[in-house]
Write a protein that binds this DNA or RNA. Structure first.
Lengths: 201, 201
DNA sequence: GCGAAAATAGCACGACCGTTCGTATTATTC
DNA sequence: GAATAATACGAACGGTCGTGCTATTTTCGC
């Protein structure tokens, strides 16, 4: 049946488990994710779920990776179809906003960053740190390209602007979760336009 | 001895408990705060600690209120000694940054906002929402005064600027927790200066 | 279809959870 | 100093937690 690699049914339920795990972690955070509740959700036994990952921490790591991969794809695939520069950068941000909207401002990548930001937790913190660094670098790269194309001033500091964009997205998630998405995204876009204008060439 | 109201010793240990609770909640969040660990920390029995609050939720609420009060005092008392306008607004932000530095970017008011932002949790969420609204209003008020004094352009939208300042503080906490305080605060101040400049009269 | 291998269930464990209750200790008041 | 109220303790409750085992079932290559 399957030509290249057999998903082997085990891998399929692994996906299913991660799917449900995401729903749970969205509400209670990565630390609030419990194997018992997860097993109940997918209709399996605790040990059955457990066997797929070997430990709770490995489950959390797997979930983190799965969501991160989806996040990158969701944002970058459409963005890479746009020409380099402002068009691509704005598309990234638009998709980022859309991602937050779809996931009801409960993006576990952000809450994980808050959960582990001050901890010496080891594996989890390290993974979160790496994901955040990677994404920030990607963002700075898009800014850099926009600058090279001449759509941002030549004295633009890509990492600085990436920080400022990121901060606004944090503000968006924060306000959307507490005060509602509409008002929050309106404020965010106003701020973004003003921000880009101040970096104009 | 005590002229007006006797702190009655019970209130004193209540303070002590909240002090330790804050240390714990900084690491594990409000949801990670457990009465057992807290009792161990203050050298009391679980039931002894419990009796002071009646329920875990009430403990969390009390902690939230205690920290919020301290936060407001820490920031506003020095700020109100400054003349209205930019001086006062900048002092507020400076103290805000300092607060985050002291508490090692583990401010539970912010992590609580993330923990409860998408939840239908009732009491906890409602309290967090109220605190965030109040503080945002305070911030917008300071912006408004600065505008009235003529140190910000007349077309400044106080709530919009308050949102943008808040977003930068979120960015500060985020980056400080993951990448270190020095770099983060440097980026934040650069962004703040640029932001204020763009609202100049 | 058969046998090996992977996937899942079932059960038990020790630890910790928040909470309750009866009792002992300690402060405060008269 | 005695009476009374405020505090704190200790044990126990029903649950849930993550994890380690051993069976049992299901899948998959031949």
């Amino acid at each position: 049946m399957n030509a290249v690699t057999t998903p082997s049914k085990g891998a399929a339920t692994r996906e299913l488990i991660l799917e449900h795990a995401y729903q749970l972690a969205r509400h209670d955070g990565l630390e609030g994710l419990s194997i018992g509740a997860l097993a109940l959700g997918v209709g399996m036994s605790k040990s059955g779920v457990f066997a797929h990952f070997g430990s709770r921490e490995d489950l959390q790591l797997a979930l983190l990776d799965a969501v991160s991969t989806r996040f990158i794809e969701f944002i970058m695939l459409p963005a890479l179809k746009q020409p380099r520069g402002m068009r691509r950068l704005r598309t990234m941000i638009e998709n980022w906003v859309e991602w937050g909207h779809i996931h009801q401002s409960g993006c576990i990548l952000l809450s994980a960053a808050v959960e582990y930001d001050g901890r010496a937790d080891g594996a989890l913190r390290e993974r979160v740190l790496k994901q955040q660094s990677d994404w920030r670098r990607e963002l700075a790269r898009a800014v850099s390209l926009t600058m090279q194309v001449g759509e941002l001033g030549p004295d633009t500091d890509p990492e600085q602007l990436a920080f400022e964009i990121y901060a606004l997205m944090l503000g968006l998630h924060h306000d959307a979760g507490l005060f509602g998405f509409e008002q929050a995204s309106s404020r965010t876009w106003k701020a973004l336009d003003r921000l880009f204008a101040s970096y104009q060439p």
